[in-house]
């Protein structure tokens, strides 16, 4: 449904996208995962024909982003990152405005937006500016869906939204996927990545990896350990960073995720070392890597020359 091949895009001094390629199958929920400055927004703008790439090809459906931009624009729903609706129009006015300019009515596409719209319908006479972050996001999604697009582009829809609204938002996407809509969504939250069927990890304009969330987790190269003790986190992390066998040590919630330089006898040696440093109640357990673990592993590999 979406084909991206060797896209390159530079702004004056920075390379926003460097040779990006991936494919999104029809009906797939595809996630672009990466921090600010990874190039997510630029990529979205290229795919929605708002920007032209310097090099490379891309197609949305059967249409080329350069030649057939008019056709693409009719077929896609787009929710830009900064999109904040018309603050001084009411919920209903916003929605019917977007319906009308896309040549449709709320009623015609009601089946598609119904599940989402019922949640904001009680506030339909409220100005969009007075809605909470989560509500705004829902309304924006309705506006992007109102013309029954085949492809939905969502640029960081969950940024600045609290965890509850974020969870609801992802549940909504799942429902939309069931309706057969292809969805390309970006997020800086690693924990949201596992909600997608396929993800591309992006960093500084480059694709670090493309796989299913499971595949990404499995590709973590080393045995991973979760370490904690009764002393405070800062002390534990400092001691681990001083340990000569440490390959990596990152805090994750209440424990530290640790990899070792050697293959054998890891937990015994580590336990001994930590005990020497005065840590008590040390727990060292093998752990399955998360997407974030893998992302950081790939990042540190990129940084090495």
């Amino acid at each position: 449904m979406i084909q991206v091949a060797h896209i390159v895009k530079s702004y004056e001094s920075t390379k926003a996208l460097q040779d990006i390629s991936f494919d999104v199958v029809q009906g797939q929920l595809f996630g672009l995962i990466g921090p600010d400055g990874a190039g997510k927004t630029t990529l979205f703008r290229i795919l929605t024909t708002l920007l032209l790439p310097d090099e490379g090809q891309a197609r949305v459906g059967e249409w080329d982003i350069r030649k057939d931009y008019k056709k693409i624009r009719k077929q896609v729903g787009y929710m830009p990152g900064r999109f904040s609706l018309y603050q001084d129009l009411t919920v209903e006015e916003n929605l019917s405005f977007f319906a009308t300019i896309f040549g449709t009515t709320i009623r015609e596409s009601y089946h598609l937006i119904k599940d989402i719209y019922v949640q904001i319908e009680p506030f339909k006479d409220r100005r969009a500016g007075a809605l909470s972050g989560g509500m705004k996001q829902k309304l924006a999604l309705c506006c992007a869906l109102v013309h029954s697009p085949q492809v939905l582009f969502l640029d960081e829809p969950t940024t600045g939204v609290d965890p509850v609204s974020r969870k609801e938002f992802w549940d909504m996407l799942k429902n939309l996927k069931r309706a057969g809509i292809t969805i390309l969504v970006s997020t800086p939250f690693m924990d949201e990545a596992s909600r997608c069927e396929q993800i591309a990890l992006l960093q500084k304009g480059k694709v670090l990896a493309i796989d299913t969330p499971k595949g990404i987790r499995k590709s973590f190269s080393k045995p991973l350990w979760s370490v904690n003790s009764n002393t405070d986190m800062y002390q534990l992390l400092q001691d681990l960073n001083r340990y000569d066998r440490t390959a990596s040590a990152f805090t994750f919630g209440e424990s530290v995720h640790y990899t070792d330089r050697q293959e054998e006898g890891i937990s015994e040696a580590l336990r001994q070392y930590l005990a020497q440093q005065g840590h008590r109640e040390v727990r060292i357990q093998p752990l399955e890597a998360s997407i974030e673990d893998r992302f950081m592993e790939l990042m540190s590999r990129e940084d090495e020359p």
Binding site: P35, G160, P188, M190, F250, M296
Partner: peptide
């Protein structure tokens, strides 16, 4: 908000 996981941890390190 919006920074990569490594930088975020470095930031937390400063906080600690």
């Amino acid at each position: 908000s919006g920074v990569d996981p490594v930088t975020r941890r470095q930031f937390w390190h400063m906080i600690y």
